[in-house]
């Protein structure tokens, strides 16, 4: 993917420090466009769009928000979600102006548990960014594709 100098500034913002203690890149030394391209390829081969994953994450966030931190079952009990919110917002590291509420969204489905934040849906929808390898809050596309399919009820987990 073509190098864009803007990504140098983005890389600085994604480093451990001001926005997130552990940063967004983990030990991934690839250029950000390459990280995005590799994850986009996984989505493409699965026939799933970033917007579809983001829509599910937004649905889960909304349901968890409405439950005010109590666990809530969704999609006929196939997915359980619970949110722990704190005050404050975290800005998008791509500096697009989006600021997501700070929260931990715990999602249980198909015998697994994954933890996301409200920023994930934005990063995936707007930037196709799942974070770098080794980043504590990276959720691989494969996990979210499995979540998407479980929510839709079209996997054996369902």
């Amino acid at each position: 993917m073509k190098h864009n100098p803007q990504f140098d500034e983005t890389r600085e913002r994604m480093a451990p420090g001001q926005l997130a203690r552990d940063g967004f890149l983990g030990d991934d030394s690839r250029p950000i466009p390459d990280i995005i391209a590799a994850d986009a390829a996984v989505l493409e081969s699965a026939g799933v769009l970033p917007e579809q994953l983001a829509d599910i994450l937004d649905e889960l966030h909304d349901a968890a928000d409405a439950a005010q931190e109590a666990p809530v079952d969704l999609y006929d009990g196939r997915v359980t979600v619970q949110i722990a919110e704190v005050m404050g917002r975290i800005p998008c590291p791509f500096a697009c102006g989006h600021r997501a509420h700070k929260a931990c969204i715990t999602i249980r489905f198909g015998g697994q548990e994954t933890i996301l934040t409200p920023l994930h849906a934005h990063l995936i929808r707007e930037h196709t960014f799942f974070q770098g390898q080794g980043a504590p809050f990276r959720v691989p596309p494969s996990v979210l594709i499995a979540l998407y399919r479980t929510a839709r009820g079209d996997t054996p987990d369902a």
């Binding site: 913002r13 001001q18 926005l19 917002r89 800005p91 998008c92």
Partner: peptide, 10 residues
């Protein structure tokens, strides 16, 4: 300011 002057938090 929440981002330490990096132009991220607005």
């Amino acid at each position: 300011s929440a981002c330490g002057g990096r132009g991220s938090c607005g």
